[in-house]
């Protein structure tokens, strides 16, 4: 009985920590999991290569998107406004440009399916299409 309770608690914690988005890559990408810190580095372009040396092509949602705000707070620990300031500084100092922004989950899935280097995120409830797989996000 005690073991069942512990299992239920663990399950409860897991549900409580379930992310509101799923990170998706092309089905040929061998990566199965990333940490939040790694994901943050990818989306701020401090990391530009997959472990096999392939270029990373991150795609984002529009700044006004609720999913973008949740992603930003979960992964970067910062608001979209803060991240926007970060990117404006890099853009207009000629250092780097932000990930491509797309309007919908469908657009993200379309792009990831057609690009082996891409990584994106979609609403956790959005069904995934063929050619795309979700990878785990670890704390």
């Amino acid at each position: 009985m005690r073991r069942v309770l512990v299992l239920l608690l663990i399950a409860g914690v897991a549900v409580a920590e379930e992310l509101p988005f799923r990170v998706v890559v092309h089905e040929s990408n061998p990566v199965v999991a990333v940490t939040r810190a790694q994901l943050s580095a990818i989306y701020t372009k401090r990391t530009r290569s997959w472990p096999d040396g392939m270029e990373i092509f991150p795609v984002d949602h529009l700044p006004a998107s609720r999913l973008r705000e949740r992603f930003s707070r979960t992964v970067h620990g910062k608001s979209v406004a803060y991240v926007t300031r970060y990117w404006q500084r890099l853009i207009f100092s000629g250092r780097a440009v932000p990930p491509r922004e797309l309007r919908s989950d469908a657009a993200v899935l379309t792009l990831v399916r057609s690009n082996a280097e891409a990584v994106g995120y979609v609403d956790a409830r959005t069904p995934l299409s063929d050619g795309v797989k979700a990878i785990a996000v670890r704390p």
Partner: peptide, 22 residues
């Protein structure tokens, strides 16, 4: 022009072009 349009099938070179301004 809407960036979202770029979410469709587009040539590789267009994905590599970024336009920003203020």
């Amino acid at each position: 022009l809407p960036a979202a349009a770029l979410g469709q099938e587009v040539p590789d070179w267009l994905f590599r072009l970024s336009i920003h301004g203020y």
